[in-house]
Write a protein that binds this DNA or RNA. Structure first.
Length: 472
RNA sequence: GCCCCCAUCGUCUAGUGGCCUAGGAUUCUGCGUUCUCAGCGCAGCGACCGGGGUUCGAAUCCCCGUGGGGGUACCA
């Protein structure tokens, strides 16, 4: 059984880089028929932002990613491997650490921060790797006794095997080899009893029986430490797949100045969530068929970890917008209306459902995100230049034709306008432009009959008459 | 400092020694279709980081540079 996890820190809304990892994890798990787990890595109290967990849950739900185990929307854990917040798992870390201590894989370290800093600086000055010199590893019982007597707090350090080549087998990056001597003994449990990240993840992934670890490359450099911990526990390593970093347009790490990076921003702007999933999956991965517009179901079917590239990628908002438009286009009219509804500015556009239907149908290929509906609706109504026309004869003919129109329907309107044009020898541009101008004050807009339909008889005739008079 | 990773059009990518005078997508430009806009169709601009090897042959393999990134914490 494939078991994967997404383990964000609760520092606010998911950003697109994180979200991509969630997407890849979910897609892969779904394909394998496995179980996806949500775990909150909240051990850094200083960075935790209140309400983040709720936010993350909402973000994932919006994307349509669900999880078998982990905190739910109600904040309650679901699953048999909990708790799913690291701060609630301290007992477990302690227990696992004790196991390693007992087998001699760990030792107490009494070094102070100042001593650590000094030896580190000295090592760099000598051109050597900046690793722990092993002071306490080699300490005699007498020294240890002295430190204990001084009341120095002790951390637990991992006894790194010497002279070994540690290999991380990674699906995306291949085998990465590192010399154990370059790493040195690292802390596993701090002197205050808190676990360090590298220890906590291993314990968590082990205890939760995670089979595939899919996460950002940022973690690749630390993975050798984790590999060695798995070996110390005499447990099989999970399969690793590190995914390249997502950068801003300037090739710098995504940050505030890159505009929207929070997933919540895209939701608020009304991007199609499936487009986000689609775009995020395309960042570093490509379908074997070469297709790019893919539904969630198609992605699940086609995803494969070994087609993920290992070079960093730049997030391109333009392509996301294009994809969002593509996904919006494939929505049925009813679905689109429903999706667009919350974004409509009711104060400006108080349309009946029927008229909204007409308006949305006429502008669906214009939408790249749902919030743009208001710009589209605006083109149906007066605005811009004041009503007055340069072609009074056309306007007059239109008035005459529309006054006599049997019913205010699309086909009748189309016919009436054409007939009016014929009467004054106008068609195409010379016919529609003056009329559109008179009614909306714009050169461009939706199909003209849709404008007439949406504005309604009264408003159209009033508008045309005003334009005719303005011209005189 | 030391260790690790990366490098094809602006961007996302195809490409695993000959199929590559490097293909697709996006952006941009032009043309066509349409009352206009959007869309759609067609066309165009646009790339193998540099230098050495290996080979009959290299975007593809090796080495060295260069540039970028990550790690090196009692951060995650």
């Amino acid at each position: 059984m494939v078991r994967t996890r997404f383990a964000p820190s609760p520092t606010g809304s998911l950003h697109v880089g994180n979200a991509r990892q969630a997407v890849l994890n979910w897609l892969f798990t779904e394909k394998e028929g496995g179980q996806f787990i949500l775990r909150i890595e909240d051990t850094d109290a200083a960075r935790n932002v209140p309400g983040s967990e709720q936010q993350i849950v909402e973000d994932l739900s919006w994307l349509g990613l669900d999880w078998e185990e982990g905190p739910t929307a109600e904040g309650i854990d679901r699953g048999a491997y909990g708790p799913y917040r690291q701060t609630q798992r301290n007992e477990l870390y302690r227990e696992y650490a004790l196991r390693l201590l007992a087998s001699g894989k760990l030792y107490h370290c009494y070094c102070t921060q100042a001593e650590l800093d000094a030896s580190r600086d000295a090592a760099i000055a000598r051109g050597e790797p900046a690793r722990y010199p092993g002071t306490c590893r080699a300490a005699t019982p007498e020294q240890i006794g002295r430190w204990e007597a001084e009341g120095r707090p002790a951390a637990l350090r991992f006894r790194m095997p010497l002279g070994q080549t540690i290999t991380v087998h990674d699906i995306v990056y291949g085998d990465v080899n590192v010399q154990s001597d370059g790493i040195g003994d690292f802390i596993v449990l701090r002197s205050d009893g808190q676990p360090t990240y590298n220890f906590a993840v291993v314990v968590d992934d082990l205890q939760m029986e995670i089979t595939h670890v899919i996460r950002g490359v940022g973690h690749l450099s630390n993975t050798p430490r984790q590999v060695v911990l798995y070996q110390a526990f005499e447990a099989p390593e999970p399969t690793f797949a590190h995914v390249p970093m997502v950068l801003g347009e300037d090739r710098q790490k995504l940050s505030k100045r890159h505009g929207a990076q929070a997933l919540a921003d895209y939701r608020r702007q009304g991007y199609h969530p499936e487009a986000l999933v689609n775009y995020l999956s395309l960042l570093g991965w490509s379908s074997p068929t070469g297709e790019e517009v893919l539904t969630q179901a198609q992605l699940v079917e086609q995803i494969s970890l070994d087609r993920i590239r290992n070079a960093d990628v730049v997030f391109d908002p333009a392509k996301l917008a294009w994809l969002s438009g593509k996904h919006i286009e494939r929505l049925s009219l009813d679905e689109l209306l429903k999706a667009v509804k919350p974004f409509v500015d009711r104060d400006r556009f108080d349309l009946t459902d029927d008229l909204m239907h007409v308006a949305v149908a006429a502008t669906r290929t214009h939408l790249t995100k749902f919030s743009e509906i208001n710009d589209q609706l605006a083109a149906f109504f007066p605005g811009g230049t004041p009503a007055r026309t340069a072609a009074p004869d056309v306007v007059r003919a239109a008035i005459a034709a529309l006054e006599r129109i049997p019913e205010w329907s699309e086909s009748a309107l189309a016919e009436a306008i054409k007939a009016a044009g014929k009467a004054v020898n106008a068609k195409g541009r010379t016919l529609y432009e003056p009329l559109r101008m008179a009614l909306t004050g714009r050169e461009h807009g939706p199909p003209f009959t849709a404008v007439l339909l949406v504005q309604g008889r009264q408003r159209v005739l009033d508008g045309l008459r005003a334009a005719e008079q303005g011209a005189q």
